[in-house]
Nucleic acid binder design. Structure first.
Lengths: 135, 135
DNA sequence: AAAACATTGAGACCAAATATCAATAAAACA
DNA sequence: TGTTTTATTGATATTTGGTCTCAATGTTTT
């Protein structure tokens, strides 16, 4: 997947800051990150970048369907995995794991009921196997 | 369901403030509300109550399994429906609707994979039938 | 190379939620 | 019922995540 091409063909301009963020998210694929995570890493390479710009860029990447997001623990988490999966957050170590799922029938029945579903997130919490075993 | 009894048997004290919040959530069942919504209504009856207390009480009610919560649009939403369902938020009118679902098989397969799931939320966004029709 | 237009950076700003802690109230029990 | 124990509340300050504004800058088109 060429994110730069996707960005351009979505009608957005390719700026150095956007390239740095794309490099960051590629280095974190698959994975989950917050605006703060992007900022602190990209800021080392591009010291003038601000949080506001990071937020702008992440929103742009969502509009280009390069990223997806969900809210958890008071923050917005981003991911490049736009496919059908659940996000599991471990309440012990805080790590987020993708759990693959088949497309849930709820989306189909919601559509049948007249709901036009444009975004869906399945979020689980609990204790991951690693933390359960180390107790 | 007697929320007061549940609260007491969970080891929490029954205070006037907690009673007012319980009255509020009962008047909003089924439904979805934020801390701010609880505050502005309860504050009319119990003018000394503060947001901090409302947050405390809502957390207590979650610990007693009277409420469940999820995060959406930068806020935490609470609901008394603790059963298996999805929450659909309409991006036009902002209303949140419960969509009943059968317990998703992901929880079973997550358990099989060693994940101990203590909380799950299925969140959908899009356009509701009402808003779709009025366009 | 210049014009047209989108994007960025800086900092003020806003809203949601948490932390602190003395005063108060509920429940247990003498 | 009065007293003790212990949880809870209210007031305020603070933290955190995120948005707004707008002049300066950078990208793309011609």
């Amino acid at each position: 997947m060429d994110y730069v091409q996707t960005l351009r063909s979505s009608g957005f301009k390719v700026t150095p800051q956007r390239l740095r963020v794309i490099e960051y998210i590629m280095s974190r694929t698959p994975g989950h990150f917050r605006a703060e995570d992007v900022y602190s890493e990209v800021h080392r390479i591009e010291p003038t970048i601000t949080m506001a710009t990071v937020y702008n860029i992440l929103r742009t990447l969502q509009k280009s369907s390069i990223l997806k997001s969900f809210e958890l623990k008071g923050a917005t988490w981003f991911e490049t995995n736009t496919g059908s999966h659940a996000n599991f957050m471990c309440d012990v170590c805080g790590e987020i794991t993708d759990l693959e799922i088949e497309q849930h029938s709820i989306i189909k029945s919601a559509s049948d009921a007249g709901y036009n579903v444009t975004d869906s997130n399945y979020i689980l919490r609990g204790v991951c196997p690693k933390c359960r075993d180390s107790q």
